[in-house]
């Protein structure tokens, strides 16, 4: 990011002359003021971690709904919570769109479980990083992916602040990105909640309009003094996400990145990306012009030299 900023400064410096600078100035302002902020009636899910008992029913429901490959262990096998791969707890993969992990938080009575999946950002990093527009944020709130146009560059995997998109490395012929689609095709677009939400015995997840859920989350915090951390993770993080979380332990203790900031991921590159087409179209013309001007002066001088050599001697 720092590099990008530096580059941006450099580019701005290069364009600092006259008309160009003013064009760039207004362009920049328009972009900064315009923030998408999500569809007004989009749906969301509020996940209350304090209610999760780690039964993994959501994982089983997801596997069934999305017709995923068979798991390595049964869904009622709790030994998966002890699995550590590459120094990390379980994460989303081509075999699973959602994962529940167990955290032992010091000072907290009993383990804390955290379900996670794609958070379906209002302004998704994956979407803005994709140069073939394989991602769509639907008005219902889901971030869906079209494998037919995907070229397999995996930039979205790097752009995602939550490390959610996974790659089907097992398929050499048709490797695609796999991620939670909030059951868009089978449920969400028909007004039904995702399979995991419906399957959860504890009703850890509340499905509803995103703006209602924010209100409900704050009410829940207020009505249960001392029970929750006074924060809804996802209300503002990276510009807001459709999936939001309540927790009774600090979010950083249960695997949440609390340093993401409130800016949508795309904002970090928006200004820079606006400059790119301008650089590509204006710079060649501009510098060709400079070049020709400079050359013309030189040519004139040389032709003067050639025609009036006596002047120099005088």
């Amino acid at each position: 990011m720092k590099n990008l900023l530096d580059r941006r400064k450099f580019l701005k410096g290069g364009l600092a002359s006259g008309v160009l600078a003013s064009v760039l100035g207004t362009g920049k302002k328009a972009f900064a003021e315009h923030s998408f902020g999500g569809y007004p009636n989009s749906m969301g899910v509020l996940v209350d971690l304090s209610k999760c008992i780690g039964c993994r029913t959501c994982e089983a429901a997801c596997n069934k709904e999305q017709e995923m490959p068979a798991p390595d262990k049964p869904f009622d096998d709790m030994s998966v919570f002890d699995e550590i791969r590459h120094g990390q707890k379980r994460r989303t993969s081509e075999k699973t769109h959602t994962v529940v992990n167990r955290y032992d938080v010091p000072g907290h009575d009993g383990p804390v479980f955290r379900k996670f999946q794609c958070n379906h950002c209002n302004e998704p990093g994956c979407l803005s990083s994709c140069f073939v527009n394989a991602y769509t944020k639907t008005p219902e709130g889901a971030v869906v992916y079209n494998e037919k146009v995907c070229v397999g560059c995996r930039t979205c995997m790097i752009a995602c602040p939550f490390y959610v998109p996974a790659y089907k490395y097992s398929s050499p012929i048709n490797p695609v990105i796999t991620k939670c689609k909030m059951c868009y095709d089978t449920r969400l677009k028909n007004g039904r909640p995702p399979a995991c939400v419906e399957a959860c015995p504890q009703e850890v997840m509340t499905f509803g309009k995103r703006r209602d859920l924010i209100k409900l989350g704050h009410e829940r915090i207020q009505k249960n003094p001392g029970k929750y951390i006074d924060h809804i993770y996802g209300e503002k993080e990276v510009g807001g996400t459709a999936w939001m979380y309540l927790s009774s332990v600090p979010f950083a203790e249960v695997g949440f990145n609390t340093e993401l900031g409130d800016q949508p991921i795309v904002n970090y590159v928006k200004e820079f990306l606006t400059v790119v087409p301008m650089v590509l179209t204006i710079w060649p013309a501009l510098f060709t012009g400079f070049h020709l001007l400079a050359k013309r002066k030189e040519n004139q001088k040389e032709s003067q030299k050639a025609t009036t050599p006596s002047d120099r001697n005088a």
Partner: peptide, 19 residues
């Protein structure tokens, strides 16, 4: 069948594929 347990359990002895 839903939980892939009991008689629907995955074949044991197969190590989980590492990523």
């Amino acid at each position: 069948a839903f939980y892939r347990s009991g008689k629907f359990a995955p074949t044991p002895g197969k190590e989980p594929a590492s990523e």
